[in-house]
Design a protein around this nucleic acid. Structure first.
Lengths: 256, 256
DNA sequence: CCCGGGCCTTGATCTGCGTCAAAATGCGAC
DNA sequence: GTCGCATTTTGACGCAGATCAAGGCCCGGG
């Protein structure tokens, strides 16, 4: 298991050219991630322990049950986290995007598998060396706790979705989640779905057919419009939010 | 909303008699909870900020959306956490038992409601004062991170359950969860269900009828036996584990 | 002891989504 | 461009679990 990871192409460009120049300082997503908790003058300590890594679509970062010796931060692309039952039924527990944190766990083993959805770039930190840094920078640890707390809230939203929402509500909720993520970096009403329908189904606890039918209904009702099968435009965000069960008035939009 | 909490009966006995005597030191669940991270000689600092609280069955501790100004630790009884949709559909995201932590969130507002299932005793800590303690005791903060990380793993298990398991598998998984909790404090093959069938259904994403039918099937198949409607005996833990989809070989049993 | 009102269980029927099947669409290779 | 495969969409049908509807049981109060 899990040696697909072996061929970890260390990015020659970033490492060679930029690394001596303090790449963390130039990082686009730093402020959004836990690295933002470290003062610029100390970023060198992060650089010292980071290894950059590249994944091709479908490549596996680690398997559920592998020993967890590393933490990661996504800098580009989309990663899916999943758990499986013995007979192959799969549940995707989350999709990760740039600035997202992966491997949070002072636990012995990963509780889920992580695979690249599309081409992914990420920063890898050895667990023990990062923990040493946490001792030096309490602000970083506090930030980690905040991240965990946000993920927990997201997980609870997902439980509500999986336990009690209809197929159409689930798909609408999914689009809302993606939309909100995209808003964080500019794009407004347009959403791209780098993952397959199978992935979406496994995330929402539905089959691909039901996902497809729900998307078709949203299309028929002029709530969304498809440019390609992976790129869509949210035509009527209000109605989409209603369908999603927008109980979100007082919910802060991710207070990192 | 949320003023049911007003009648917070401060426990006269524990406060008056034991408090001057350092009740935290005598606490039965301390080692299991985050308080265990504080050295005995510093427990006084915890005692200084704690308020003991008692809830009657059904009493609401706080509502989803309330400002979160407190953290709690359960010392006795069972608490349910839930989220609701506008039309009343409810999802219970977890049941808490003695030593469990509640209100983890450096977030502004609670993401869920918390209600007593049966008579509950808990310790309440003002958020800002506990945060001050965290600064003094990094071990406590680390412990908090570990708790969060465990809860996250549990949440992901629950997503797998809600998204991909059948009714029978869900009920079996639920009993396994309870059984494991009970084992932590002695009781072996006997499990009590302080919550109603409605609660169980809302936890498992099922209706009460389906929960009842599934339990009846487990009973018919001699996997469990009922003493009363709330007290059962696990006759065949192996088969129960199989039904639950026991992919748990390498899963640690809650590494606090 | 009996009564009343929650719960819980069981049965009959319905339905949203899964399953099976096939057609349409997109897209990279040549 | 067009061929071929993978993915998505659409349609027909079936089933697990929801809904509707009776009872049965337990327990507390009079």
């Amino acid at each position: 298991m899990s040696n697909v990871v072996a061929k970890q192409l260390v990015q020659p460009l970033q490492r060679g050219v930029v690394a001596e120049n303090n790449p963390c300082a130039a990082c686009q997503v730093r402020d959004l991630s836990i690295c933002g908790a470290i003062e610029p003058e100390h970023l060198g300590k992060l650089d010292a322990i980071v290894v950059h890594k590249k994944l091709v679509p479908g490549e596996i970062l680690f398997f559920e049950g592998d020993r967890s010796d590393s933490l990661y931060i996504i800098t580009e692309g989309c990663v899916r986290l999943s758990k499986m039952l013995a007979d192959g039924r799969r549940q995707i527990t989350g999709f990760l995007f740039p600035s997202d944190f992966l491997g949070l766990a002072l636990r012995e083993r990963y509780a889920y598998s992580a695979e690249a959805v599309d081409p992914v770039l990420l920063c890898r930190y050895p667990k023990n060396r990062l923990e040493a840094l946490l001792d030096q920078f309490p602000a970083m640890e506090r930030r980690l706790l905040a991240v965990a707390s946000n993920e927990l809230a997201a997980a609870q939203d997902q439980m509500l979705l999986l336990g009690r929402k209809t197929a159409l509500e689930r798909v609408a909720s999914f689009l809302m989640i993606l939309m909100r993520r995209m808003q964080l970096k500019g794009r407004q009403d347009t959403v791209s779905l780098p993952m397959t329908r199978t992935d979406i189904g496994d995330y929402l606890g539905l089959t691909i057919e039901t996902v497809s039918r729900s998307l078709s209904k949203l299309k028929r009702d002029r709530i969304v419009r498809f440019l390609t099968a992976q790129d869509m435009q949210i035509v009527d965000p209000k109605r989409l939010a209603q369908l999603a069960g927008a109980d979100d008035e007082w919910k802060p939009t991710t207070t990192l």
